[in-house]
């Protein structure tokens, strides 16, 4: 990363800090949502983008973060930060417990196993009395959008700094080597098991905190929304649309898609979903390596970039 983009990023972050004093209520709702979704995309990026393990089950960690906060606050009347900690502990334990068997699977097998876990977890939680069974839990209500906004922004910055570190570190080199060729990575001295598990744990951790913040912010949770499987799809698409395995791609991808979605959802929700689907189809055909790669490619080769992508990938 050159110093210039970093400087720009720093300026943008400083400007973003002041948004709550300028934005309307509706804008704030959108901003908090967009920031949390960006965290999910960025956290997914550590595992899916850098390590090449496509998870359709990160909603499990999100749900555990959600329930950690809700159980701590609604059932035991503990402060919010304890809730966040509980969420982290649950998510990390879960990542360790399921990661060890599941990270042995590769390709679509891993992807679908995680999808299965996401579905199973919702069913399990809806049968736990301490989690409010299938009715859900109500958290103490506070109106503090500014706080939620700054927390979400802080989390996103932290998560992105982590990804920045990954992209430049020995650890990250190991992850990318695993993505490129796992067997070769092993014979070159990389302890692939440990690397993959650490990537999963990092991914789980940030995802869980996003869940905790979201739970307190909307102050009511139930299994269906906490373990919403479509959330997985949204984070994967945002990351992949922006450019998986890059530092800023998932951010840009998620902000753009959040904005499109928000704009359309305010008119007709079916049309919004439909357009979302069409965007995915077109994106895979014309820019299979994500937005970041496309910008570079188009600058270098103009519209021929798109044709070349098709020529490379068609039968």
């Amino acid at each position: 990363m050159r110093p210039l983009p970093l400087a720009i990023a720093a300026v943008v972050v400083v400007l973003l800090v002041f948004v709550p004093w300028l934005a309307s209520d509706v804008m704030m709702q959108f901003a908090i949502d967009a920031l949390l979704l960006a965290v999910l995309a960025q956290a997914w990026n550590i595992l899916g983008g850098f390590t090449g393990y496509v998870s359709f089950g990160n909603s499990v960690f999100y749900g555990l973060g959600t329930y950690g906060a809700a159980i701590a606050m609604a059932q035991f009347h503990l402060p919010f930060w304890v809730g966040i900690l509980l969420g982290i502990v649950l998510a990390v334990l879960c990542a360790l417990l399921i990661g060890i068997p599941i990270l042995r699977l590769r390709g679509p097998y891993f992807a679908i196993a995680t999808l299965g876990l996401a579905a199973a977890m919702g069913a399990i939680v809806s049968n736990l009395p301490i989690a409010g069974s299938n009715i859900g839990l109500v958290l103490p209500l506070i109106r503090a959008d500014t706080m939620f906004y700054e927390l979400s922004l802080g989390l996103l910055v932290l998560c992105t700094l982590t990804v920045l570190w990954v992209s430049k570190s020995r650890f990250g080199m190991g992850l990318v080597a695993i993505r490129e060729d796992e067997d070769a990575a092993g014979t070159m001295g990389i302890n692939t098991t440990v690397f993959k598990i650490v990537a999963l744990v990092l991914s789980a951790l940030f995802t869980a905190v996003a869940g905790s913040i979201h739970a307190y912010w909307i102050s009511f949770i139930d299994p269906a929304s906490a373990f919403d499987p479509t959330l997985n799809v949204r984070m994967v698409i945002m990351a992949v649309f922006g450019g998986p395995g890059t530092v800023f791609g998932p951010l840009v991808g998620s902000f753009i898609l959040s904005a499109i979605y928000e704009y359309l959802a305010s008119s007709i929700s079916t049309a919004a979903a439909l357009l979302f689907g069409i965007v995915i189809v077109l994106a895979v055909i014309f820019m299979p390596r994500g937005l970041a790669n496309m910008i570079g490619g188009v600058r270098a080769r103009g519209p021929r970039y798109f044709l070349q992508n098709i020529r490379e990938n068609r039968l």
Binding site: V54, I280, V281, I285
Partner: peptide, 17 residues
């Protein structure tokens, strides 16, 4: 047929779309 030779992730994504 336009995407069959690209990465598995991409065929997953396009069929998801």
């Amino acid at each position: 047929n336009l995407v069959v030779r690209s990465a598995m992730l991409n065929t997953l994504l396009i069929t998801f779309g």
